[in-house]
Nucleic acid binder design. Structure first.
Lengths: 164, 164
DNA sequence: TATTGTTATACTCTATAACTATA
DNA sequence: TATAGTTATAGAGTATAACAATA
């Protein structure tokens, strides 16, 4: 167990990391805010899914998820198919255009981070990733669990069907 | 230099850490949102200062700083004194009530983090703090530099005058 | 009756621009 | 003319509550 002073310091770090988030956000395309980017990223990582599952992965209320998804769908980056097993549900699927947008997102964020973290070693970045993942796990965020990564090579929309 | 895949993953971690920030935010007193908490914390850490200096430490626009400061001042947690050296400026000073509020903030955030991070070692927390600090440094955030910590024992408002 | 998803409303945080007062 | 700070406005993100459709 760590000391109290450490927890105060960690709270400050959490409060202050917003400046990095904002700068990464400013690097995104103008029509793709951070919420949309998160939707696209999670859909590629976890495959097709329902709204409720996406809300769980985003760790925000489903009403928030609904708005993000509506924005992403309006741009043609995803499609909402009816769920044959439950007519209340909608299955979210990335489109080829969504994959293109995702590639552009990754280009931009990767370029920015590579520039700013040019003097970081591979191991340091890995450690930061590991500790941030663990932090989210400790706060009960299901997104921190390992997931399958679909091969981004295929531009075809061959997502697996939603599991629930 | 780290690999591209790592940067994509780091971008995801930055996007996802919001869930932790939100939960810490929910632990704050209802009349003290995160922005106010940041103002109080920085004033204690760095001592009395002008608006422009606080905006730099917060790493947000001065208009944002002005609103946070107005909220904090309305609660009596700080006072805005005229700067004899420059009539345009205002020197921000923590009040005893502000120190009390700060103590309450620290109690709450510390309790939450101690609960959630109960299985973390002292060293792990220290490493996360170190890496997050370095991350902000790499993004040019001046707040990441080491600062003097005033003795929190005294409840008297004996801040040092602003340096600029 | 419970669950899935959407919409309306409100609040926080942020940035840009216009403005006042002073340097 | 430039700078310190405030205020108005707009936009993104979030949560709660009310709602519709379905289970």
């Amino acid at each position: 167990m760590a000391e109290q002073t450490q927890f105060e310091e960690l709270a400050r770090q959490l409060s202050a990391v917003g400046v990095v988030k904002r700068e990464v956000g400013r690097a995104l395309p103008p029509d793709c805010p951070a919420g949309s980017a998160a939707v696209l990223t999670l859909l590629r990582r976890h495959g097709d899914m329902r709204m409720s599952k996406l809300a769980e992965l985003l760790a925000v209320d489903m009403s928030v998820t609904s708005r993000h998804v509506a924005h992403v769908a309006a741009h043609g980056w995803i499609e909402r198919h009816p769920d044959p097993a439950d007519k209340r549900s909608r299955i979210l699927c990335l489109t080829p255009e969504g994959l293109d947008e995702l590639a552009e997102l990754n280009r931009r964020t990767t370029r920015l981070l590579a520039e700013r973290l040019a003097d970081w070693t591979d191991d340091e970045v890995a450690q930061l990733i590991r500790l941030m993942t663990r932090l989210r796990t400790s706060f009960g965020d299901c997104r921190s669990s390992p997931v399958r990564l679909p091969t981004p090579a295929s531009e075809e929309n061959t997502r697996t069907p939603a599991s629930t």
